[in-house]
Amino acid sequence: MEINHKSLYIKTTIMLSVLTLIEIGISYWDIVRFYQVGLLLTFALAKMACVAYVFMHLYYEEKVLRRILFVPIPLLIYFLLGLAYDAQFNWVIQ
């Protein structure tokens, strides 16, 4: 851990800010809804990965910890798919 992390941290911060600006830009951009949502989520995930890997030092932790922390993600996606599918299915009285 002798390396100077300062420049890495500064780079990450700039990167996060730029990504945020791009996200805001996308939200005002008039494109197909599906792509907009997809792009926004991708950027959000990229930003989250930056924070987790650099600021939370996940990159320097042991592999196992990283793997275990990623186990809930497919599970949550599974739940989300189930819920979303069901939300779209039912007839709603308007």
């Binding site: 996200e23 805001i24 996308i26 939200s27 907009q36 949502v37 926004l40 989520l41 950027f43 959000a44 930003k47 989250m48 924070v51």
Partner: peptide, 11 residues
């Protein structure tokens, strides 16, 4: 917050 911002505010 990154996720909340994206999902609640931007999408």
């Amino acid at each position: 917050w990154i996720l909340v911002f994206t999902i609640i505010y931007l999408i």
